[in-house]
């Protein structure tokens, strides 16, 4: 494992911890999109099916369990926790799941590496992960005033994707036959979706001010 991969994984882990910290300590999920969290739960559930069939490393198994566990517990908190669920911006978080899930599934049926359940679901999880942040970005755009923890959560998620791209560039030059179009293109699309957010995030850091997106 190279340094970009490790940094990417740790940033991903940090993003989830920031989110859980916010929900658990402040007992608030204001500004957090349940839709995005549910999409991530689907992403991890479909991608980590191999948890029971293939053993890669202790690190790999632990991280998979953490991402599965955290995504499902965040969904549980927002839907079921008697205090947290009151802070959920239901009327603002209007993105429809099937607008995202259905096209990703159709695309996975068309573009995959092998036509097996595992490979199609894996491709589906990559396509879905690429666009799962959309409901969250729309919600940020609508609420405009973003609290620090929510801003950091989205920033860390974007940083994780950017670091994965550096990891693929590194692997391409150090490992023979490392060519993965499905992973690369969906990863690139996913990172590009953060470009606008990154721009305003760095602007607000430069001005030492609060993160605010334009209307």
């Amino acid at each position: 494992m190279n340094i970009f991969r490790l940094a990417g994984d740790l940033t991903h882990l940090a993003s989830v911890l920031v989110l859980l910290l916010k929900i658990h300590t402040i007992k608030s999920c204001a500004g957090i999109s349940l839709k995005t969290q549910e999409l991530y739960a689907i992403v991890f559930a479909t991608r980590y099916l191999d948890l029971f069939t293939t053993y890669i490393s202790l690190y790999n198994t632990l991280m998979k369990l953490i991402f599965l566990g955290s995504s499902f517990s965040i969904v549980w908190y927002i839907r079921k926790h008697k205090i947290v669920r009151r802070s959920y911006d239901k009327d603002q978080d209007t993105f429809r799941h099937y607008f995202i899930v259905l096209p990703c599934f159709v695309l996975a049926l068309i573009i995959h590496e092998k036509f097996t359940v595992r490979e199609v679901l894996w491709a589906f999880s990559l396509y879905l992960e690429a666009v799962a942040i959309l409901p969250q970005l729309v919600l940020l755009q609508r609420t405009r005033n973003i609290d620090n923890l929510t801003g950091q959560y989205v920033f860390l998620l974007g940083a994780y994707r950017a670091l994965y791209i550096l990891n693929w560039i590194y692997r391409y030059f150090t490992e023979p036959h490392f060519v993965h179009w499905i992973t690369w293109i969906s990863g690139l699309v996913q990172t590009l979706l953060y470009a606008d957010f990154f721009y305003y995030y760095f602007q607000s850091m430069k001005n030492n001010g609060k993160l605010q997106l334009p209307a």
Binding site: M1, R5, D9, H12, D50, T54, I56, S57, N60, M63, K64, F67, E113, K114, R118, E119, W122, Y164, N167, H177, F178, V179, H180, W181, T183
Partner: peptide
């Protein structure tokens, strides 16, 4: 290329 080459990634 197949999924197995990147199965170590999350």
């Amino acid at each position: 290329a197949s999924r197995d080459d990147v199965k170590d990634e999350l």
